[in-house]
Structure formats: structure tokens, C-alpha cells
């Protein structure tokens, strides 16, 4: 027997998702609430030069590269 969830439940969930998607979603963290996120300790890449060196050492020793998450950058080559 093919497994398939209850079709009614599936229809209800689809309706809920569609309706939710149609509703406008407002930014839920206001600019005046972002003081903690703006703290330098929350920066993705606080010291670019040091991070570059760190990533370089890792890339030289490991096969993986890229998507380091350091400010959206990464090594383009190896």
C-alpha cells in the first residue's frame, strides 16, 4: 500500500499555508530593537585580515573550500 497522509489533513494544511503566504508579513524586529545586533561582538567577520589568514591556513590543509560564512565571502580557488 502506498503511504499517503490523510488527504483532508493535507488539504487543510495547504489552505493554511496558502492563506498565510498571502498575508503580508511585517519586519518583526524594528530598527530601534537592533542595538544588540549592532554590537561589534555580533559581527560575522570582525577582523577581516585575521579571518583571511585563518581561512587560508584551513584551506591549505583541507580539501574543502568556500561558504566560510565570513561576511558572505570565501575562497574562490585553491
Amino acid at each position: 500500500m502506498r503511504y499517503w497522509p490523510n488527504k483532508s489533513l493535507f488539504a487543510v494544511l495547504t489552505l493554511v499555508l496558502v492563506n498565510t503566504g498571502c498575508a503580508s508579513i511585517e519586519p518583526w524586529v524594528k530598527p530601534y530593537e537592533r542595538d544588540k545586533l549592532a554590537d561589534p561582538i555580533m559581527a560575522f567577520n570582525r577582523n577581516p585580515l585575521a579571518t583571511s589568514h585563518l581561512n587560508h591556513v584551513q584551506d591549505s590543509r583541507e580539501a574543502a573550500r568556500g561558504a566560510t560564512g565570513a561576511g558572505g565571502g570565501g575562497c574562490g580557488c585553491n
Partner: peptide, 18 residues
């Protein structure tokens, strides 16, 4: 570890800010 140039080529520009 001879730090091939290509390995580092973009790393020094990583952190291209938000």
C-alpha cells in the same frame, strides 16, 4: 602550505561587508 597564491586570492577580500 606554501600558501599557493590562488588559495588566498579571494580570502583577503573576504568579509565583503553587509
Amino acid at each position: 602550505l606554501a600558501m599557493r597564491g590562488s588559495t588566498a586570492a579571494l580570502l583577503l577580500v573576504a568579509g565583503a561587508a553587509q
